[in-house]
């Protein structure tokens, strides 16, 4: 009898050990197409706390199977004071494995960031509050949502049509759509930005600020993601609505993105290494973005591209 109990206990322990190992082993849901654009997304990361380090470790682990070239940072890159020691403990050390392998980081400013972070070379901002860069067939626009002044709006309006790429992605700190209780969406920012996004055919928008993960159903033909929990977390802060496609607010996350042709594949992974969301988005047709531009300018809630999700 005692032997039987011991055997059962040992089997249970072994099974638990095996399942833990399985959870830690990266399970990639991205297709790894040849010549695809591959990147990771983190937001509100710079706490310097163990959870940031653990999430960063998970990113490095996934990079072994999904060799992403760069990371976009959605702001609040360095919380609290910004001494050289803070840059070390809140950025350089947690992401050391990635930095050592030549992964580039492209940051935007959050409300907790000193605007002079734009001069910190590893953030690749070139000394500017807002900037653009291209990778493969994707043009990225990094914006400063803390201070969306007429000069920045004019720059965006002039630069977006010059984007000579198949995909246009904008990223900035404050979310235009969010169903997190603590902050929620910035309606005034949305009123100024979304008509420009729709007019110029922006495909995808990434934001942080709310310390949760949320994928929003397409709004005015544009795909929106909120990811503000790569370091910070507000547990159970999400109040999903009919606009929410998927949400996660019980642990830290980061995203992996792969763009190949007219498809964008994404996988959102928790600190523990489990996949909390994944899917594929089809690039919007210019006809749909034209209709969306009209709808966004008129302020309607047109959302016609949700068939891209699975």
């Amino acid at each position: 009898m005692r032997r039987a109990v011991l055997v059962i206990l040992t089997s249970l322990l072994l099974a638990q050990h095996a399942s833990l190992n399985a959870a830690q082993k990266p399970v990639l849901k991205l297709p790894l197409r040849p010549k695809s654009v591959r990147f990771a997304v983190i937001g509100d990361s710079g706490t310097g706390k163990p959870e940031q380090y653990e999430t960063a470790k998970q990113m490095a682990s996934y990079r072994d199977t999904f060799p992403f070239e760069f990371v976009i940072m959605l702001g609040d890159n360095i919380y609290g004071t910004e001494t050289p020691a803070d840059f070390k403990t809140k950025f350089e050390e947690p992401y050391k494995a990635l930095l050592d392998e030549g992964v580039k980081f492209y940051a935007v400013l959050g409300n907790h960031d000193d605007p002079n972070e734009r001069f910190y070379k590893p953030f690749n901002m070139g000394g500017e509050r807002y900037y653009s860069f291209k990778n493969g067939n994707v043009q990225f626009f990094a914006l400063d949502s803390n201070y969306m002044d007429p000069a920045q709006l004019d720059w965006l309006d002039n630069q977006l049509p010059k984007a000579n790429a198949n995909w246009t992605i904008c990223f900035f700190h404050h979310a235009l759509y969010s169903h997190a209780r603590f902050h929620g969406p910035d309606a005034d920012l949305r009123a100024r930005l979304e008509p420009l996004f729709a007019k110029h055919g922006v495909n995808v928008v990434f934001s942080g600020h709310d310390h949760v993960y949320e994928r929003i159903k397409p709004q005015n033909g544009i795909y929106y993601f909120v990811l503000g929990n790569a370091g910070q977390l507000r547990v159970h802060d999400l109040r999903p609505s009919k606009e929410t496609a998927k949400g996660f607010d019980t642990d830290r996350t980061f995203m992996l993105v792969e763009i190949a042709g007219d498809k964008l594949y994404f996988q959102t992974i928790s600190r523990a290494g489990s996949t909390v969301d994944s899917g594929v988005l089809k690039k919007q047709s210019s006809a749909s973005t034209g209709a969306a531009a009209h709808a966004a300018a008129a302020g309607s809630g047109y959302a016609g591209m949700d068939d891209g999700y699975r």
Partner: peptide, 12 residues
């Protein structure tokens, strides 16, 4: 102060 967040200014 470095430790105090900078509140965003509404674009409008």
């Amino acid at each position: 102060p470095a430790s105090v967040p900078l509140q965003s200014t509404p674009p409008s």
